[in-house]
């Protein structure tokens, strides 16, 4: 007998997904793209409908971040509403996003799956309470890297950035978001009956970001529900910016090191 570690590899969801997505997509879009963009647009419309702001981040191609923001802010079609969207510069980066974003906002990132600033921002977004959409090309990000992924696999990211692939992606996202606004019934968040939450019954592990180290092993953390204190005396290497898993007020494990931002 051996104790194995199965990476989420070709045999796992990503590999299985490749096979599932093998069917050709409509109108030159990648397979499954229509379903993906519709889901992303609905999630985004719901965020806007509940007062959220869209933050746009494209560290390697800042023009795309500005373009996305302009699309949403500028009501080019008569009768459609202007939606709050702001481009965040590469210089402002993750630190800027951390300061600007509130729980309930949305984040669109235009980047390859290898872009470090994009990965750092998206890894922290759940702890900030954001809905995330990742537009990109080349190797697909790992499952769970963002809530919604609009991807041009098999294309070179630096080329896709200039061939209109990304522009098409966020134009479709913008148009479909407005389609959702034409159907107000869609904008309600689905009420899921989940019963009373009990941290121990659910074996809960909440993803939070460490903001500040306190006294006696305490850390101030940012969770989707707000700021709270947790005890970090059970783990090593916690610093501001670390992503950690909290259960019943204690940090159980460190998922990503802080970058000292």
């Amino acid at each position: 007998m051996s104790v194995g570690t199965a990476a989420q590899s070709a045999a796992g969801p990503a590999g299985a997904l490749d096979a599932e997505r093998g069917a050709a997509g409509a109108g030159g879009l990648p397979p499954g793209f229509g379903v993906d963009v519709a889901g992303a647009a609905l999630a985004l419309a719901r965020r806007f409908a509940h007062g959220g702001t869209l933050w746009c981040f494209a560290p390697a191609w800042p023009a795309h971040a500005h373009h996305v923001a302009v699309e949403f802010v500028h009501p080019v079609v008569v009768g459609t509403r202007a939606l709050p969207a702001v481009a965040v510069s590469a210089e402002a980066g993750v630190a800027g996003l951390r300061t600007l974003c509130r729980a309930g906002d949305a984040l669109v990132v235009v980047a390859s799956s290898e872009e470090p600033a994009a990965r750092r921002a998206l890894a922290r977004a759940p702890a900030w309470g954001l809905t995330t959409i990742w537009i990109g090309a080349g190797p697909r990000p790992a499952p769970g890297a963002a809530d919604h992924v609009l991807w041009w696999e098999g294309e070179v990211p630096s080329q896709a950035a200039h061939t209109g692939r990304f522009v098409l992606s966020y134009h479709l996202l913008w148009e479909l978001t407005h389609v959702c606004f034409e159907h107000p019934g869609l904008l309600e968040e689905p009420q899921v009956c989940s019963g009373p939450a009990c941290v121990t019954c659910g074996d809960e592990g909440r993803l939070v970001e460490v903001l500040r180290l306190g006294e006696g092993g305490a850390v101030l953390v940012r969770a989707a529900t707000g700021l709270e204190w947790a005890d970090a005396s059970l783990v090593e290497g916690v610093s501001p910016g670390s992503l950690v898993l909290v259960h019943a007020g204690s940090v159980l494990t460190v998922l990503a090191e802080g970058s000292g931002e």
Binding site: A14, L17, E20, R21, G32, P126, D147, G205, R206
Partner: peptide, 20 residues
């Protein structure tokens, strides 16, 4: 740990169900 739609992708789920 986190609830995200990418962990709930129907296409990926269907592919896994077929493997199963």
């Amino acid at each position: 740990m986190r609830f995200v739609d990418e962990y709930r992708d129907p296409a990926a789920a269907r592919a896994l169900v077929r493997r199963i």
